[in-house]
Design a protein around this nucleic acid. Structure first.
Length: 257
DNA sequence: GCGCAGGTAATCT
DNA sequence: AGATTACCTGCG
């Protein structure tokens, strides 16, 4: 099935943008995305025309209702980043997988995060296609064999993972229902989870709950702030799509080391 | 072999 | 409140 995108979508940049850790490039220009129990195989066949097994789930996942080319940059530097990262979209990922993934992400390099998450999926998820696994449910993580979990390279984060999976599974916390919360309340709720501080909470709010005003401030964004904004965080004043800008700045920074 | 990596929580002042 | 420090590994 073919699908035309109104503005821009660059699959490679999305894979490399650090917001998701399991999407990957296959052969011949095909890409694979996994979310919940769904697998999308997608390829850009002409500019802005994408072939793949599309449905409404993935259209929402890629935030196709938002026209990114209409987003206003707030200065010269963000314009530069926006041009450089053209085609990046902020994904609407599964909240549970996003929660786990960004707890794992702390003090880890992106390749290390990917390795760790892949091991968790292989060991505890369900195989939906040959070699393709779901991210394990809260129950599957909570009931995971601890010795096997230790082989997943989590380090000290293993305690966070166990604590959060217990909380979500035993207390039957419905992460989807967090969609109803306003952003301030959402961030507060997320930070009640063990191992979730301001940075990780903002990542989850932005990458799973579509809160485009949320700005995760990490070392790269801090570098940008000190290098281009004289140490003054420029995001506070530019609320609405600040998080989207943040992602373009992040992508620019990791590609200009 | 060795420093550091998309931070958080506990423990200081 | 704000600053400092320990924390587990796996990449490069």
């Amino acid at each position: 099935m073919k699908l035309e995108v109104k503005d821009y979508m660059n699959l490679q940049k999305i894979v490399d943008s650090g917001q998701c850790f399991r999407a990957c490039k296959l052969n011949d220009g095909w890409f694979r995305f996994v979310s919940k129990d769904k697998v999308l195989k997608v390829k850009e066949v002409q500019p802005c025309v994408f072939e793949g097994n599309w449905n409404t789930y993935w259209e929402n996942y890629f935030d196709l209702d938002t026209n990114y080319s209409k987003i206003k940059c707030f200065d010269k530097f963000t314009k530069k980043c926006f041009d450089f990262g053209k085609g990046i979209r902020i994904l609407k990922q599964d909240p549970w997988e996003t929660l786990m993934s960004f707890i794992i992400s702390q003090r880890k390099s992106i390749p290390a995060i990917k390795t760790s998450i892949e091991r968790i999926c292989m060991n505890f998820g369900n195989e939906i296609e040959k070699g393709v696994f779901t991210f394990p449910t809260p129950k599957q993580v909570f009931k995971a064999n601890f010795d096997v979990l230790k082989t997943c390279g989590l380090g000290y984060r293993i305690d966070y993972i166990m604590s959060v999976s217990k909380q979500v599974y035993v207390e039957k916390i419905n992460l989807e229902s967090f969609n109803n919360l306003d952003t301030v309340h959402l961030l507060k709720k997320l930070q009640e989870f063990d191992g979730v501080g301001p940075k990780v909470a903002n990542c989850i709010a932005l990458f799973a709950y579509g809160r485009s005003e949320c700005v995760p401030v990490d070392t790269w964004i801090n570098k940008a702030i000190s290098r281009y904004y004289e140490g003054v965080n420029p995001f506070e004043k530019h609320s609405k799509n600040a998080g989207i800008m943040q992602q373009y700045i992040f992508y620019y920074m990791i590609n200009h080391k």
